[in-house]
């Protein structure tokens, strides 16, 4: 049977739950990396101070990268919150599927006159849960886009730090190494978020 709760006969909610779990795992990985950027940025600030006036620009950028890592963690925190709400709604939808099937079987077997009204009430409840899940899905997608834009900014900061590192004179080598690591990590986060944007959780609705 195929209806609004199923896709090609398979419960979509079950597939959604797996997709949410994967998204959550990816977000946890990004949070871990964002924390790493924070530590790296602190080290970079100290390095820039030691380098003195030749690394003033690098120091400013390192500070901005530190702010970026904090913003990213806040952003990921709100994504995690949305994920938890999605899990809650998907669980309700899964429960709806089982209950509705059992209720429908009961009503079909008994031909109880009250049954159709109960089923309709249950379907209305199901529709409400699906609608709430749909709204959360869109909200999560928008938040991911926000996170992606933030990471694009982080990428610009990392690339600017690479340029600034070239003016570091005696410290140019260590500064280039740190800014290269920044760039690599931000790129890693960017790839993770891009994969999340392509999740079937957003396309297979």
């Amino acid at each position: 049977m195929t209806n609004a709760l199923t896709v090609a006969g398979k419960p979509q909610a079950g597939a959604d739950l797996l997709r949410i779990v994967r998204i959550n795992e990816e977000i946890k990985a990004v949070v871990g990396v964002a924390f790493k950027i924070n530590i790296m940025a602190l080290n970079a600030i100290f390095l820039a101070k030691r380098a003195g006036t030749t690394a003033l620009g690098f120091g400013v950028l390192s500070n901005e990268l530190r702010v970026f890592s904090q913003d990213l963690r806040t952003c990921m925190g709100s994504l995690t919150d949305l994920i938890h709400r999605c899990v809650n709604e998907v669980s309700l939808v899964l429960q709806d599927i089982r209950h509705t099937k059992l209720l429908r079987d009961a009503v079909d077997l008994s031909a109880n006159p009250a049954g159709q009204a109960i089923l309709q009430r249950r379907e209305a409840g199901n529709a409400e849960h699906r609608s709430r899940l749909g709204a959360l899905r869109r909200q999560l997608q928008r938040s991911l886009e926000d996170a992606f834009r933030l990471v694009e900014l982080g990428g610009v900061l990392a690339k600017s730090a690479k340029i600034e590192a070239a003016y570091g004179q005696a410290f140019a080598g260590p500064l280039a190494q740190v800014s290269g690591e920044f760039d690599g990590i931000v790129e890693e986060i960017r790839n993770s978020l891009q994969a999340l944007r392509r999740s079937a959780f957003f396309s297979d609705q």
């Binding site: 059992l102 009961a106 079909d108 077997l109 008994s110 031909a111 109880n112």
Partner: peptide, 10 residues
């Protein structure tokens, strides 16, 4: 439940 419900409804 479906089997019990339908029997009880009778």
């Amino acid at each position: 439940f479906p089997a019990v419900f339908s029997a009880l409804s009778s």
